[in-house]
Simulated assay, not measured.
Amino acid sequence: MTVSPSIRLEAATLSARLPSLIVASRNVAQTVRHGVHGRRKAGSGEIFWQFRPFVSGEPSSRVDWRRSARGEHAFVREREWESAHTVWIWFDRSASMRFGSSLAPATKIDRAAVIALAFADLCVGSGERAGLLGLTRPMATAGVIESLAEAIATDERLNGASDAPLPPPAPASARSLVLLVGDFLGPASETERRLRTIAANGAVGEIVTVADPIEETYPYTGHVEFQHPGGSMRLLAPKAQSLREAYLALLSAHRDELKQICSRLGWGMSLHRTDASVAEVLLTLRMRLSAPEIGAGIRSA
């Protein structure tokens, strides 16, 4: 008996589905917004955050003389961060992201688009500027979801579907935040080179590896033909179950390598399955990228 993997390869372009993805992004951003609290970064706000040592060259007016009088060193009173930062976002639109099984409500590319657009809306709502890496300028407009979606549709219309599984090799500005969403199934060494290029000026951030549940569980048995979403490769497995252990071991080793890459850069890494809650991963991302420390390892969301 021949058993074919249950997959859904979207024939329509991403831009044709953008109207529904815009609605989904706006709805999930609104849901998450209620769960986001103080961002706890230093800046020009009103809420006290912490004392830190005075740095030579800073205006003396920033010194907290009462705290400094208790010791031999001068200290600055920092308040909760409120000034605008730049957030760069990218999501993978290559062929492998068009995969979707019957175990999940969405393909990987549709889920990545919702995460990216909704996250941009959350950032703009918090006073930051958000842009698509290599595609748009940073913006702080209320209709950021629609603006970014229009840029994606225009890019598809002019250049066709993207076949780039990694973000463009453009360094993000210093002290900016970066969110990269994709399956990152390519060689880890290539991913590391690209991340180092983006982080060259001091940007910090997080990658979200998006996976379909069928990719995580490998439920195949019997005679199965596997096909690459791009149609370039096929593999006929007479006893598909015999490959399960080796496949899962390779996947785990690949994820560990990505985790180590992010750790070396001081970035974070999250794993999101397309059968999981979008709101949950967005809330986790918003709190993680709003924290002073980035890169605490892999998390599931």
Results as ranks from 00 to 15, higher is better:
Met1Gln: 14
Ser4Phe: 13
Ser4Asn: 09
Arg8Cys: 02
Glu10Arg: 13
Ala12Gly: 12
Leu14Val: 04
Ala16Val: 07
Arg17Thr: 02
Leu18Gln: 03
Pro19Thr: 09
Pro19Lys: 11
Ser20Lys: 08
Ala24Gln: 14
Arg26Gln: 14
Asn27Gly: 13
Ala29Cys: 04
Gln30Trp: 15
Val32Thr: 14
Arg33Val: 07
His34Met: 12
His37Phe: 03
Gly38Ser: 12
Arg39Thr: 06
Arg39Gln: 04
Gln50Leu: 08
Phe51Asn: 07
Pro53Lys: 04
Pro53Glu: 03
Phe54Cys: 10
Glu58Gln: 06
Asp64His: 06
Gly71Cys: 00
Glu72Asn: 15
His73Ser: 11
Ala74Tyr: 11
Phe75Met: 11
Phe75His: 10
Glu78Ile: 09
Thr86Leu: 08
Thr86Arg: 12
Trp90Arg: 04
Phe91Tyr: 07
Ala95Met: 05
Ser96Ile: 12
Arg98Val: 10
Ser101Ala: 01
Ser102Met: 08
Pro105Gly: 09
Arg111Met: 04
Cys123Met: 14
Gly127Pro: 11
Arg129Ser: 10
Gly131Lys: 05
Leu132Arg: 03
Leu135Asp: 01
Thr141Lys: 15
Val144Ile: 14
Ile145Gly: 01
Glu146Gly: 15
Asp155Lys: 05
Pro167Thr: 10
Pro167Met: 09
Leu177Thr: 12
Leu180Glu: 07
Leu180Phe: 10
Leu180Asn: 07
Gly182Gln: 04
Gly182Pro: 05
Gly182Asp: 03
Phe184His: 04
Phe184Gln: 06
Leu185Gln: 12
Ile198Lys: 02
Ala200Met: 12
Ala203Gly: 13
Ala211Thr: 05
Pro213Met: 05
Ile214Pro: 02
Thr221Ala: 13
His223Glu: 15
Phe226Arg: 04
Gln227Glu: 15
His228Asp: 15
Gly231Thr: 11
Ala240Ser: 10
Arg255Ala: 10
Leu258Gln: 04
Gln260Arg: 11
Arg264Met: 00
Arg264Trp: 00
His272Gln: 00
Thr274Glu: 00
Asp275Gln: 01
Ala279Cys: 00
Ala279Asp: 01
Leu282Arg: 02
Leu285Ile: 00
Arg286Ser: 08
Arg286Tyr: 08
Ile294Phe: 08
Gly295Ile: 05
Ala296Gln: 02
Ala301Lys: 09
